[in-house]
Each structure stands twice: as C-alpha cells, then as structure tokens.
Design a protein around this nucleic acid. Structure first.
Lengths: 217, 217
DNA sequence: TACGAAACGGAGAGCCCTTCTCCGTTTCGC
DNA sequence: GCGAAACGGAGAAGGGCTCTCCGTTTCGTA
C-alpha cells in the first residue's frame, strides 16, 4: 500500500521530518539484521534497540509487525534485484557475474526474506509480487547467461541458489559468534565451485524455483 | 554416552525400569530434533510433546536444560563419530566415504550440536571433550584420506565441513516447510562437488578447525 | 531567536509462553 | 497381587514481548 504510502485515507502526503526519515531507514535496516538472526519471530524491541530508537518510535512508523516485515521484504528485494541487474551488465564474464551477485546478496542479507515463506505473510499482494518478480527475473538472467556460456551446471534453478545462499549466510541463533562471518565467504565460494559446469555429480530431485519454495509453505 | 550418567553422587547405579529407559531415549531423540529446529532456546515442553511424554517426566530425567543438552550432544557426537568410522572402513573410495558421511551426518542432525557454541555450555568437561575429540578424529581421518588420494581439495578443514553441513541442513525457523528436505540433499551434493579436487577457486581466510569455532564463542 | 508542531523515548500495564512442581493415577517387576 | 517406580495433567510462578501513555526533545520556519 505504499504505492503512495498512507494511501488516500491518511494525510501522509506531507513530507516526513528529516529525523523521521533517517530513523525510518535505520529501523528497516535494523529489522533486516534482526530477522536474519532471529527468524520470523524476531522481537520488535530488539529492532528498536539496534536502530537506536525507542520502541514507541517503531510502533509509530509501522502499525504492526506485518507491516514492518513487508517494508523489509520490499527493501531487500529491490536492493538485491538492483545488485543482480548491475552485476549482469557490468561483469564481462558470465560466472563472475554470478559470483559477484552471490557475495553481494549475502551482504544484503537476503536471508531476511525468509518470513515471506511464513503463512502470516501475504505474498500475493501486488507490490510484493512485483518486487519478487523483478528479483527473480534478474537472478534468472544471470544464471541463464552462465548456463548458456557453459560455465554453470544446468540442473539447478533460482530456488536452489537462493535457499542455499540463505542457509549458508544465516548466523547461528543465540550465539553472537563474531568470527563467524570470516567463514561464510569460504562456504559460499565452495558452494559456487560446486555450481560450476561440468557438473561433478547427478542431483536427485528437481531444480527448485521460488514458487516451489512458496508452495511448500 | 551413558558411561556413568548420574555420576557417583546419585544412586543411579540401579537399573532403570524398562519404560523409563525407553522414554529417556525418546526424549533425547525428541530434544535433538527440537534443538535443530528451534536452536539453543528450544522450549522444553515441545521436547516432551514430541517424545510423547508428560513434561514432568522430562524434568524427572534431566535436572535442567543444560543436562538435557549435554546428553543430546554426547549422543549426537557418539553416533556421528560411529558413522564416520564406519564410512572410513567400509567405503573403498575415499571421496565416497566423505559423501556417505555427509549425508548420514545430516540424518543424525549434527546441527543439534550448535548449542555447544553457546556460552552456557561447558565444553571443557572431560566426557564432552572426549566425545568431541573422537568425532573430530574420525572426520579428520576421512578428510585426510580423501585429500591424500587427491580427490578432496586441500584448503579446507573439519570446521569448514561441519559448519556448512550444519547450516545447509538447518530448517527455516517458524516455517514448517514440509517439502524443504527434498532440497537439502541437493544442496549438500552441490557443496560436496565444490569440495572436490582440483579446487576451482582460491579460498580466502584460513581453514577452520572445530577449535576455531569454539574460540569465537 | 522563538514558537508550534512533529517526533521521540522511557516506563509500565497486559498478555502469552515457558518453566517447574504437586499429587493422584498407572505401569512395571517380582 | 503387591509395593515401588514412573507417569501425566494441571496450575502457580516467572520472564519476555507487545503495545500505549505522556512528558520531553528536536525540527522547521518566521
């Protein structure tokens, strides 16, 4: 509904105050990190704490947790799609584009999108659907190019990449493991090596798309 | 694992009743599954529910959550070590042994060991230390053989394998994603393909051992 | 600089979930 | 068939999360 945020009903047409805008951005960022770490049931107070604002400010900007998740999802999808589009255009080598995208997506914390698989989240909403489609198209384009050039194995799809990416970059819950990030990039690289053509094995099951993931709710 | 469970202090020397033994095993199994799904902060009542026993029974067998985690850790480490030892002996091919171990470890839910990284858990305890060492030795043996035979890349260590394994097999929190397991084996296989020699990339950082992981608390 | 409106933050009430215990009932082993 | 061991449901106690109230601070403008 943020097509025009408050929509017709509310006088949100007026510009937010400078500090309000700044805080709003901080809160979405903080929410992204918190979701990645805690999963869909993240505590809202933790988001406020990380954003450096009072919890009341959080509730003032987002009516409820669903609305906050929605904003995070839109933000992450848009930024990730942009990264993918940039990588596709700017990288001369097809597999390099894929690699670049994977590492950048990790930085963007695509894992924050996992609440989208929750039943509480309305994926069918036009704006969300549109964001997902843009992201999926961009990633598919990267993968297609790499597959056509014979550098990426052909038996995988977007869902395989995104789920593994989410899983490998997810922090261990409860443990504030500081040195952990140092290993994540290694594991992503190892996974990427496994994606290269020629395939070194035969995969069981079928390639996963993003729809497949949503379908299993 | 039940070497001397209750230790000397308690009259646990007497044999448990048949149903008690059965329930105890069920509870440890249920705890393993629950920890994998919820992380270190798993609800104890959920364990009881999954084990098909009343919550009181759980508290009767394990004084507190720490004790339960300890038993799970010992159980998982022992079973995983056994799997590794078996694979090493029974598989003629070095990389096949590694592959077999990875899939079996996933089935054993090694992800349940992640509470061991929590500060609340005493890793220094002799029995735990011993279990960890046995497991680490067994896995190292498998990896060493595969590296010596030129099938496994040389720039990785036990920690790399176990963390990635844990991450890739961890269920998405909150979402009871039924069809999810179907993809896990695919991702493990892709990761394994990335582990093969010759290495298709240069990894940054240094190979991770299990100590490295514990060190980062 | 001064003023009004917008935005903020801390504290606290209400609620739910988790932990843990009590005690009557059931099951096991002999 | 009996005694002891084990069980399970219910419920009190505690803690954390959600959300709101209201006094204070900050921003934007004249």
């Amino acid at each position: 509904m943020t097509l025009d945020i408050g929509t017709a009903a509310k006088p949100r047409t007026m510009r937010l105050r400078a500090d309000a805008t700044r805080n709003r951005e901080r809160m979405v960022d903080a929410a992204r990190e918190t979701i990645v770490e805690f999963g869909p049931d993240f505590p809202l107070d933790e988001v406020a704490r990380r954003a450096g604002v009072g919890n009341a400010t959080l509730y003032r900007h987002f009516t409820d947790r669903t609305e906050l998740i929605r904003q995070v999802a839109l933000s992450v999808m848009a930024r990730t799609a942009q990264r993918a589009e940039d990588a596709l255009v700017e990288e001369p080598d097809a597999f390099s584009a894929l690699q670049r995208f994977v590492f950048e997506a990790a930085d963007e914390r695509v894992g924050a999108l996992c609440p989208m698989l929750s039943s509480a989240f309305d994926r069918a909403e036009p704006v969300v659907e549109q964001g997902r489609r843009r992201m999926e198209n961009a990633i598919t384009a990267i993968m297609d190019r790499a597959q056509c050039s014979g550098q990426l194995r052909g038996d995988i799809a977007v869902g395989d990449l995104m789920v593994a990416l989410t899983q490998l970059t997810r922090p261990l819950p409860g443990t504030g493991c500081v040195g952990f990030d140092r290993f994540v990039r290694r594991h992503l690289q190892l996974f990427l090596d496994g994606l290269r053509a020629p395939a070194r094995s035969t995969l069981e099951g079928t390639a996963a798309t993003l729809e497949d993931l949503q379908g299993c709710q």
